[in-house]
């Protein structure tokens, strides 16, 4: 940046984008130029879900060392079941359904935070225990059945304006808002301050508890929104709809350049990591690898990327 360091420094969070680009090119080369557009638009659509969940997880992880939300998949499924039950495939009930889903998420986040502070549990255990409870709620709501979404929700999930998918664009706007919030808003500054040093933030007059509560509630809300939209996209709420997002939400945050030690967050990097994840799946599928090899390569690539990406100083 300064004259003392003339060489180009590649920020850690750009690695996701670079690798994602390489995978997109590899897939395109393998299966022809015609598929380039559809590969990218599928990755953007699925990436939008990963980014929404990941952004919530990022707020929790950034709020301090050890903070993490393992209840994300169960909140996704619970919110989807509750909202699908309320909407009952009726378009006119979509707004109440959405509000109910968001309320489920916010309450779940608050319960997580309550268990962490009131019982002094490590967040990993508190959110795990709640996820068991949420799973039971979901079981009793819908059982094994897949609940169908109203038509308007399915239509919105794949809506295109002038050939551009609306939902990924909406999520990109969300990322942009989150970048501004973290950099400029009082909440954003307080969140990062609390994450860097709880004591220093406390002495500076930050209500650390309230800031973390907000982070957990936003994380729950983001998971609930994802569950709601995902059931529109995939044709219904299913019990295991959130399962893959447990590890993925953590992985996209960390690969996106957010420090697990807290106090630092990178909303833009989540997009790179989410695109990397989805394009990698597409690429390995296109190359006709069998399932075992796909898993193995996924693991190797995750480790490679964290190992080669330079880390932010001080973390």
């Amino acid at each position: 940046m300064s004259l003392a360091h003339p060489r180009v420094v590649i920020a850690p969070w750009t690695y996701g984008f670079i690798v994602a680009l390489a995978m997109w090119i590899a897939t395109t080369v393998y299966s022809g130029l015609g598929s380039a557009g559809s590969t990218l638009s599928a990755a953007l659509a699925f990436g939008a879900f990963s980014v929404t969940v990941g952004t919530g997880q990022m707020l929790v992880i950034a709020s301090g060392p050890g903070n993490i939300d393992l209840s994300v998949p169960s909140v996704m499924a619970l919110a989807a079941y509750v909202s699908m039950t309320i909407m009952h495939e009726s378009n006119s009930m979509t707004a109440p359904g959405l509000l109910a889903a968001l309320a489920v998420g916010a309450v779940a986040g608050a319960l997580n935070f309550l268990a962490i502070t009131a019982l002094r549990l490590p967040p990993i255990i508190a959110t795990l225990a709640w996820s068991f409870v949420f799973q039971s709620f979901t079981f009793n709501f819908g059982g094994e059945a897949t609940l169908k979404p109203p038509e308007i929700l399915s239509w919105f999930a794949v809506w295109r304006v002038g050939g551009v998918q609306a939902m990924p664009v909406a999520v990109m706007i969300l990322t942009l808002v989150m970048m501004i919030v973290l950099r400029r808003s009082v909440f954003g500054r307080q969140l990062l301050a609390a994450g860097q040093s709880e004591r220093a933030a406390d002495l500076a007059g930050v209500e650390v508890g309230r800031v973390r509560l907000t982070a957990y509630m936003l994380c729950g809300t983001a998971a609930a929104l994802t569950g709601f939209l995902l059931s529109g996209f995939t044709g219904g709420a299913a019990l295991n709809m959130g399962d893959t997002y447990l590890m993925e939400s953590i992985a996209v945050v960390v690969l996106g350049g957010t420090s697990v030690a807290g106090g630092q967050a990178n909303p833009l990097g989540i997009w790179g990591a989410a695109l990397f994840f989805n394009l990698m799946a597409t690429m390995l599928n296109t190359f006709h690898f069998e399932a075992g090899v796909r898993f193995l390569l996924t693991g190797v690539l995750i480790i490679l990327i964290v190992a080669i990406a330079p880390r932010a100083r001080g973390s």
Binding site: F295, T298, V306
Partner: peptide, 8 residues
């Protein structure tokens, strides 16, 4: 990442 490797 290791968990994916063992599973694979």
């Amino acid at each position: 990442g290791m968990s994916f490797i063992w599973l694979g």
